[in-house]
Measured scan of single mutants.
Amino acid sequence: MTFKLIINGKTLKGETTTEAVDAATAEKVLKQYANDNGIDGEWTYDDATKTFTVTE
Rank of each mutant, 00 (worst) to 15 (best):
D47N: 13
T51M: 04
D46P: 00
E42S: 10
E15C: 06
T51S: 06
F3S: 01
E27C: 06
Y33F: 14
E42Y: 13
E56F: 07
V21I: 14
L12A: 07
K50E: 03
T49E: 07
E42L: 12
A48H: 11
L5M: 05
A26Y: 00
K50A: 08
D36K: 08
G14R: 12
D47T: 09
D36I: 08
D40N: 14
T11G: 08
A24F: 15
A20Q: 11
T18R: 06
T2S: 08
K10F: 15
T49I: 08
K28F: 08
G14L: 15
A24T: 13
T55H: 11
A48Y: 11
N8T: 08
T17K: 12
T25L: 11
I7D: 02
T55W: 11
T18E: 04
T18P: 01
I6M: 08
V29P: 02
A20M: 03
I7T: 04
G41C: 02
E19D: 11
G38E: 06
I7P: 01
D22I: 03
M1G: 12
T2A: 08
T55V: 09
T25M: 11
T49W: 04
M1R: 09
T17N: 08
T2W: 12
D47S: 13
K13E: 07
I7A: 04
I39K: 02
V29Y: 15
K28A: 14
L30H: 03
T44N: 14
D40K: 13
I39Q: 03
D36L: 07
V21R: 10
D46L: 05
A23S: 09
E27V: 07
L5S: 00
G14N: 09
Y45G: 00
G38Y: 07
K50L: 11
G14P: 13
I6R: 06
E27A: 11
W43M: 03
E15P: 04
E19K: 15
T51Q: 04
F52A: 00
T51R: 03
K10A: 15
L5E: 01
Y45N: 00
K4G: 04
E56L: 10
M1L: 12
A34K: 02
I39N: 02
V29T: 12
K4Y: 09
T2F: 13
G41R: 01
G9H: 14
I39G: 02
E42W: 10
L5A: 02
V54N: 01
A26P: 00
I6F: 07
K31P: 00
G14K: 12
Y45P: 00
K10G: 13
E27R: 08
W43L: 03
G38A: 08
G41I: 03
M1Y: 13
E42C: 06
D36G: 05
A34Y: 02
D46S: 06
E19I: 14
T18K: 04
D40V: 15
T2Q: 09
D22V: 02
T51K: 03
D36M: 09
L5H: 00
A23Q: 08
T53R: 06
